[in-house]
Amino acid sequence: MDIIIVSIIIAAAALYIGNIFFQKFKAARSGKSGCGCSTCPEGKNCNAAYPSSNNSLNQ
């Protein structure tokens, strides 16, 4: 019984973390919205605080 309960909890945690990091990856990758990291107060995102400039880094 223990193994079943623990397996469910682990699977739920894995799905939750996977989803969170996927969302953070998409957000950081797109540069259009914040990653929701711990220093961004709720409802605000650090990306919008620093709008993209024309100063692109062409590598």
């Binding site: 914040g34 711990s38 220093t39 961004c40 605080a49 620093y50 993209s52 100063n55």
Partner: peptide
């Protein structure tokens, strides 16, 4: 702080 807004602050 956090490196993420720090990286973005370099836009200035």
């Amino acid at each position: 702080g956090c490196a993420v807004p720090g990286v973005m602050a370099t836009r200035t």
